[in-house]
């Protein structure tokens, strides 16, 4: 079992938790626990109901989409400090990708329903948390757009 101070330290170690006030981080730590995943574990599959938000403390996770006929494509890897499971805060609370563990990983996990309730009643905490969540999602959106451009792609092959 993780102690509260271990969770608090873990939260403080990455960019997501580092900028929070001590009070805000303490609130989160109170409702969080550390979880570890071995290599190869599927944390969640695309489309499944998701009920927790997690901040990665160490390790590496792959966000994968399955393309029939092409197999699993990794579209992003998640490094320490970043979050997984933002869908737990936003309806319909279903995973938008499959999450697979690439390196032994530990995360600080926050149960979705409890976190939503807590943010509803504490606007100051909500502002701090949602601001960071928006940052994380915006980065992914921006990166996804850049990936869409396929900047390194070759032009079409000419007949000669």
């Amino acid at each position: 079992m993780s102690t509260r101070s271990t969770v608090d330290n873990a939260l403080a170690s990455g960019w997501f938790g580092a900028g929070l006030t001590d009070a805000a981080r303490a609130h989160l730590a109170d409702m969080a626990h550390l979880t570890s995943y071995p290599i190869g574990e599927v944390v969640i599959r695309e489309g499944q109901a998701i009920d927790s938000l997690a901040v990665v403390v160490e390790g590496r996770l792959a966000l994968r989409l399955n393309v029939p006929g092409r197999g699993a494509v990794t579209v992003l890897t998640i490094e320490p400090g970043d979050v997984i499971g933002w869908s737990a805060l936003i309806p319909p609370h279903r995973a938008t990708s499959t999450i697979v563990v690439l390196e032994p990983t530990s995360v600080v996990e926050l149960e979705g329903a409890a976190l939503r309730a807590r943010l509803d009643e504490d606007p100051i905490l909500a502002a701090a948390v949602l601001w960071r969540l928006l940052d994380a999602v915006a980065r992914r959106l921006s990166a996804t757009r850049t990936q869409l451009l396929d900047l390194f792609a070759q032009p079409d092959r000419e007949p000669w």
């Binding site: 590496r60 966000l63 994968r64 992003l76 890897t77 390196e103 990166a143 990936q147």
Partner: peptide
């Protein structure tokens, strides 16, 4: 190192190059 996209065999990072250092 990072790549824009990868199959399941690749265990390295996936994402755009700025994500290697923007945080």
């Amino acid at each position: 190192e990072t790549v824009d996209r990868a199959g399941p065999v690749w265990l390295g990072r996936v994402g755009i190059v700025t994500q290697l250092f923007d945080h």
